[in-house]
Design a protein around this nucleic acid. Sequence first.
DNA 1: AAAAGCTTGTGAAGACTTTCACAACCTGCC
DNA 2: GGCAGGTTGTGAAAGTCTTCACAAGCTTTT
Lengths: 206, 206
Amino acid sequence: MRKISDATITRLSRYYRSLARLERKNQEMVSSKELAQTGGATSVQVRKDLSCFGQFGTRGLGYPVCQLKETIAHILGLHRTWNVALVGAGSLGAALISYKEFKRQGFHIVAVFDKDPAKVGKNKRGLIILDIKNLPEVSRELKIDMAIVAVPKTEAQSVVNLLVQAGFKVILNFAPVNLMAPPQVTIRNVNMAIELEALSYRLMAN
Amino acid sequence: MRKISDATITRLSRYYRSLARLERKNQEMVSSKELAQTGGATSVQVRKDLSCFGQFGTRGLGYPVCQLKETIAHILGLHRTWNVALVGAGSLGAALISYKEFKRQGFHIVAVFDKDPAKVGKNKRGLIILDIKNLPEVSRELKIDMAIVAVPKTEAQSVVNLLVQAGFKVILNFAPVNLMAPPQVTIRNVNMAIELEALSYRLMAN
DNA sequence: AAAAGCTTGTGAAGACTTTCACAACCTGCC
DNA sequence: GGCAGGTTGTGAAAGTCTTCACAAGCTTTT
């Protein structure tokens, strides 16, 4: 299998959402053109993206909504649930625990960690905050697959080091800082400030 | 001026952060190589990115830290403050109000709106929640420059319509849904679920 | 059964980004 | 001054991603 670009994977997620909506509307078939419009892409792009994984459509008809949705779910790993650890029980952490879309797509936050002794033991949206020291054992016991980092930027690197040591292979980081990790560990960054800065640039440029 | 790619702007933001850190360490000069390492890029990329806007370095020496930081600040519009409206006073909204990095970079959330009458009038982290009906006037009065959408995905499109009508030109959207807007309006999406899905794909692939 | 109307799948072209390679230039040392 | 060591700035090459163009194939109509 040739390498799939990150952009393609991101678009697949969007197609998946569009397909889910079409499924709720009981639409049976969808053309690449229609899927493109609701997914913010072009019809060729939809077809090219899908062609990376096989041939799922019928010429003249389009793609079967349910079936294509299931196919994408399997490609992205959405047909199963994933256990997620959240590190950082601040307000962003709280928001992430409550974030419905995670649960909807099968991402279950099953443990929250913090290093602040004042927080450890407290209940946060239904989860007991655990001491970050126990992260390695708890992760093993609960079979946690991925981690979300939502700590202040000063703490982020040490948290990542701990996660790497504990064997985590993928990490979603919300701290606005560039993190170092060995190449076999994938870190994705959500940097909300950078997003605003790109918008501010847009306002400056016009 | 030729078109600047989005990737370049995003990297400039990262360089800016690295420069700020070097400035705190009182480092005077920095080479593209060093800037690249801390900013997660290559040295050539740093130089190419900067060369879009002018020549800021000295051969053999590198770039003056403070001066380059200021230059980037001006390019990105970080030398001034921006007034930001937040729509959606849920837990994500609360987290965004408290998010320090926004304030640090000059993005001030000066108003929070919600459509829920039960929330309107309440205090959220120091801000009184306003009725979304008043968004147009309040935005004009407070000279609000940009908007953040942090409402459930079912509400997002109607909120965006309202924002567009009120004259907003740039919007940062956190709702996990594809939004439609006229071409002169820039929408940036932060879709946390899609980020996790990309990670889940990574776990599937290996 | 042939034609018309759609739509997929894909090689090739085009556009955009990144990387390479190197001239140009600065500083410090001999 | 001249040389060594280091770094920028940039045209060109390489690589990646997107768009174009069109054959292939399905369904409906006549």
